[in-house]
Structure formats: C-alpha cells, structure tokens
C-alpha cells in the first residue's frame, strides 16, 4: 500500500456509492408514497374533516361569543378573575390589531394537536412505565423526535401527504408529543412504592391500580408534560406554516421573507399571548386539582 492518503483524508465512500444509496432510498420511499399515499391520506380524512369543522366553528362563530366562551372557560378552570380578565384583554388586543382570524386558526390546530398528543402520548407513557423494555426502546425514539431538525422529518411527511393541514398537524405532534410521554412515564414511576403495594395488597386489579392510584398520583407530573407539549406545539406554528398550515405562523413567515418587522412582532406577540394563556390556565387548573397534596399540612 503505497497510497497513504487515508491518513490525511477520511476514507469515505465514493460519491457514486453514496448517490446509489440515496437514489435507492429515495426511490423506495417515493414508490411507497405513490403506492400507499392515497390510502394513508384517506386514513387521515376523518381527522382532516374534524380539523376543518373545528376551524370553521371558531371562525364563523361571532367573535364576542367566542371571547365570552373562552373567558368563562378560563374562569371555570382556574377560578381566578385576574386570569380571566387578562385573557379577555389580550384577545381584545389581538382582535383590534386584525389578527383574530389567524389566531382562531392557530388556536384550533393547537387545541387539536394538544388533545391528540394527550390521547396518543399518555397511553405510550403508561406502556413505558409498565415495561422497562418498552422504555428502553421508546426513549431513544423520543430523543430523535426532539432533536432531529423539524425540517428533516417534514420532507417525508410532505412527500407522503403533500402540503396542508394534516402534514402540519403530524409535524407539530412529532415535535410536541415527547414531553407528555416522558412525564407520564416519569410520573407513574414516581408513585410511592408503598401506596401501590397497599393497593395491590387490598386486591386491586391492574386496571384499578392504574386509574385509582397511578394516574391520579402521577397527574401533577403529567400536567407538567401536557403544559410543555402545548408550549412546544405553539413553537412549531411558524415551521408548520411553511407547509401550508394557516394561522399566526404565515404572517411571521411573510415578515421574514419581506423584512416586515412590525408585522412579525405583532404576530409573534399574539403567539406569546396564546402560549401564556394556555400555560397559566393549565397550570392553575393542575394546582387546583392537586390541592390535597400540599398546601394545608398541619402534621
């Protein structure tokens, strides 16, 4: 071996080989999406119609009705006049600056994403808490989902489903679901051993243990996970707008390409306002629901 170039340069594979791999993988995936794309799209159709229905509901209901409903809901969940008033004022300001419709669109997709994340994430978290094997398989997946740049997994999603609400929704959920899974798992694993043993010793079935002891006691942790999930979903609004999700993200995207600072700032602030709303309401609800765990100890 007279050629010692591998000492100075990394002995990488040739361009042709790499191209071969890329072509093969891309080709396979393209064939897959051509063959099954329609079926997969059809699978998501009910979800799409629900998304559209929910968005239309928010858009076509008179603004004052929605405002009243949201304020009432916030009060019902948090029992705090201050919070309810703050939400009303921010929504009024958002409307006054002409961002009502975009905000409603964002609100609708975030709400749907959150509920879907909870519906998918909590059972996965429970599974992880029950089996160490499941935990060791799923944890690296969650790591990838959280660190892989969103644009990268947007590519296959768009290839498969085109641009639109569903790919946007999927991208948001992939990015936002890990916290609720992780913290459900953690919350259940942190339930005191003796409390669980007590349930078992008195003859609780696995289902009674899960719904009677593990989930209720894990709830503060799970709520923290849900809170994080909502925040991360909101953070994805701008990226989702790149694949055609309407809402507050699109004006922001427009401002970046056209250097409209004020437009970007206003829409950014609207996202922040939504985030704070969700955060404070979910937190104060969680705190209220868990009052027995702390506050008034006298022992």
């Amino acid at each position: 071996m007279s050629d010692h170039s591998w000492l100075t340069e990394f002995p990488d594979m040739s361009r042709r080989e790499l191209l071969g791999i890329r072509k093969a993988l891309d080709g396979t995936y393209r064939d897959f999406s051509r063959a099954y794309g329609d079926q997969i799209e059809a699978f998501f159709d009910p979800l799409l119609s629900f998304l559209i229905w929910f968005e239309n509901l928010l858009l076509h209901t008179p603004w004052w009705l929605i405002l009243g409903f949201i304020s009432a809901l916030v009060y019902f969940l948090s029992r705090s006049w201050k919070l309810s008033l703050g939400v009303t004022v921010s929504l009024l300001a958002i409307g006054y600056f002409g961002m009502w419709e975009d905000t409603m669109r964002t609100l609708s997709i975030i709400t749907v994403c959150t509920f879907l994340s909870i519906a998918i994430g909590v059972p996965i978290g429970i599974l992880m808490a029950r089996s160490n094997r499941a935990q060791s398989l799923i944890t690296p997946l969650l790591d990838i989902m959280q660190t892989m740049p969103a644009f990268v997994y947007l590519i296959p999603v768009v290839m498969l489903l085109g641009i639109g609400k569903i790919p946007g929704l999927i991208a948001v959920i992939i990015y936002a679901i890990p916290p609720v899974i992780r913290l459900t798992n953690l919350g259940i694993r942190l339930v005191p051993q003796e409390t669980l043993e007590a349930a078992t010793a008195y003859g609780a079935t696995p289902t009674q243990r899960l719904f009677g002891v593990q989930l209720p006691l894990a709830m503060p942790t799970i709520m923290a996970g849900i809170n994080q999930t909502i925040m991360m979903a909101l953070a994805m609004v701008v990226i989702a707008s790149m694949i055609g999700v309407k809402g507050l993200g699109q004006p922001v995207l427009k401002s970046i390409t056209n250097q409209y600072f004020t437009l970007g700032l206003l829409n950014g602030l609207a996202i922040v306002a939504l985030a704070i709303m969700f955060d404070r309401v979910s937190q104060s609800y969680a705190k209220r629901a868990q009052r027995h765990l702390g506050d008034n100890q006298n022992g």
């Binding site: 005191p192 003796e194 409390t195 043993e197 007590a198 349930a199 078992t200 010793a201 008195y202 003859g203 609780a204 079935t205 009674q208 009677g212 002891v213 209720p216 006691l217 027995h292 765990l293």
Partner: peptide, 30 residues
C-alpha cells in the same frame, strides 16, 4: 387478597388523593 388478608405499612401507604373515609373504605370499595 380481598377476602383473607389486609396489610398495614411502615410509612402508612395511604392514598394521598383520597380523604380519610375513602382510604378506610378502600378495600371494600375496590
């Protein structure tokens, strides 16, 4: 377990999210 044995734990093992009455009746309620 439901009918033959019951157990008392060192650190009580009570359900923190249930009131005292519900804790006492736990074995019967399940």
């Amino acid at each position: 377990r439901r009918h033959k044995m019951s157990m008392v734990f060192q650190h009580f093992g009570l359900m923190p999210h249930h009131c005292v009455l519900d804790n006492v009746g736990y074995g019967l309620s399940i």
